[in-house]
């Protein structure tokens, strides 16, 4: 299980830049950043090293931050790799709220991040199917 930071952002010029600058100034390195937008606001999801430092520095800069548990899985780099994983969750009737992926530099596999309804059930099902769920320090 991995801690993800979520920041509620208004859609206005420079807001995302200020967010990333605040993280940069705090010496936080981002692994993944995903922006979900609607017409009026955005929700920015971040996976980074030193989650606590990142959260404090964002709040000090006036952002509203919540911490969410997500599941990160190393997905083999071949056709159907992601489908195998999603079928495991589907078979358990676990709904995926959202997902995104990123590639580790120099790695042979992609990392997929899932937000699911029942995190512990999902972890167990993935484990039983032999799929390796990444620990926080592995991401």
């Amino acid at each position: 299980m991995v801690k993800q930071l979520t920041v509620f952002l208004e859609n206005s010029p420079g807001r995302l830049a200020r967010l990333t600058r605040a993280l940069g100034d705090a010496g936080v390195n981002m692994r993944a950043l995903m922006v979900a937008d609607t017409a009026e606001f955005g929700v920015v999801r971040i996976i980074c090293d030193r989650t606590d430092v990142a959260k404090d520095s964002l709040e000090a800069a006036g952002f509203s931050v919540s911490v969410t548990d997500v599941i990160a899985v190393a997905v083999p780099d071949h056709p159907g790799g992601l489908a195998d994983i999603l079928e495991v969750l589907g078979a358990e009737d676990i709904n995926v709220e959202y997902a995104y992926c990123f590639v580790e530099p120099g790695g042979t596999s992609a990392v997929d991040v899932f937000r699911v309804e029942r995190v512990s059930d999902a972890m167990r099902a993935l484990g039983e199917a032999g799929i390796r769920v990444l620990r926080a320090e592995e991401v």
Partner: peptide
């Protein structure tokens, strides 16, 4: 204003 206590991770919560 959204209250800081709201878990706004999911867009559908906000919608």
């Amino acid at each position: 204003e959204v209250s800081p206590e709201v878990n706004f991770d999911e867009v559908k919560t906000l919608e």
